[in-house]
């Protein structure tokens, strides 16, 4: 366990070093959030029909998404790992006396948590001091907040184990960058980071909500505002656990295969 903690720490420290990058990301996230709030406001005001989520719920969804962007985006994958896959440096990783899957998992988790820890505070602060309609509200209640924390953790696990599957698949192809863009392009929409999933009309919606991607940021962000509650929430939690186990096992198997392949082919 200690080994994995130290991988985590190294990533955390390097994450902090990029000062300017942090400032940039903060501004970006703040700006993005604000623009999105404005879009939904315009949508609300110019139509007689009511939105599928309450406006305060949308606002908190948007701000939480921006604040914890680093935890959930499947786009910003670990470039070092990809570099290793491309230039073959990965063979060295398999020579170390630790489980490759565990090590990479810890690494990805480390860099995500580090980035999010650095960025969520200021973004949330901005979101709290903004004027009324764009201000993020308090959680829907204590239970909602506790469930928010739980589902947040679970969706982080789902996201990381999904990324692990992508890394491992990339290992088996000669053009990892291409596959990565293909994957993330699809996931971005299906996970609800382009528009919240409730905005997707019915026949599509019920299919999408069973996919693993809906178990990522979709669940905690809607739990916070109480948009997702009661039985639907319980169901979502179990779905998250289910997908985490499936993705973990799948990724682990793939990792094993990759290891064997290296041993057999000598890299």
């Amino acid at each position: 366990m200690k080994k994995y903690i130290s991988f985590f720490r190294v990533r955390f420290a390097t994450g902090l070093q990029y000062r300017m990058a942090a400032v940039t990301a903060l501004t970006t996230q703040f700006f993005w959030g604000l623009m999105e709030c404005l879009i939904y406001k315009a949508l609300m005001e110019s139509n007689a029909v009511s939105l599928p989520m309450g406006y305060p719920a949308i606002v908190s969804y948007i701000w939480l998404k921006e604040a914890f962007y680093a935890l959930f985006n499947t786009w910003a994958t670990d470039n070092d790992l990809f570099g290793m896959i491309v230039d073959g440096g990965i063979s060295y990783e398999f020579c170390r006396p630790v489980s490759v899957y565990g090590m990479w998992f810890a690494r990805s988790l480390g860099s995500r948590v580090a980035e999010a820890a650095l960025r969520c505070g200021p973004v949330l602060l901005c979101a709290i001091i903004l004027p009324a309609p764009y201000r993020i509200g308090p959680p829907a209640g204590l239970t909602a907040f506790l469930f928010f924390l739980l589902t947040m953790f679970l969706s982080l696990m789902v996201t990381v184990s999904f990324c692990m599957v992508v890394y491992m698949l990339c290992f088996f192809t000669i053009s990892p960058t291409g596959w990565r863009i293909l994957f993330t392009g699809a996931v971005e929409f299906l996970s609800g980071s382009v528009i919240p999933l409730p905005f997707i009309p019915q026949p599509y919606n019920s299919i999408i909500s069973f996919l693993p991607f809906a178990s990522m940021l979709n669940v905690p962000l809607r739990t916070y505002s109480g948009d997702l509650a009661g039985n639907a929430l319980i169901q979502a939690v179990f779905l998250q656990i289910f997908w985490f186990i499936v993705l973990y096992l799948f990724g682990y198997r793939l990792c094993h295969k990759a290891e064997n392949r290296i041993v057999i082919q000598g890299g």
Partner: peptide
């Protein structure tokens, strides 16, 4: 192959905007 995947991937990414 890389080129083909890149075009398709970027197509999907941009298409997300349309879907939204």
């Amino acid at each position: 192959l890389s080129f083909f995947l890149m075009v398709t991937g970027r197509f999907i990414l941009a298409f997300n905007g349309f879907l939204a």
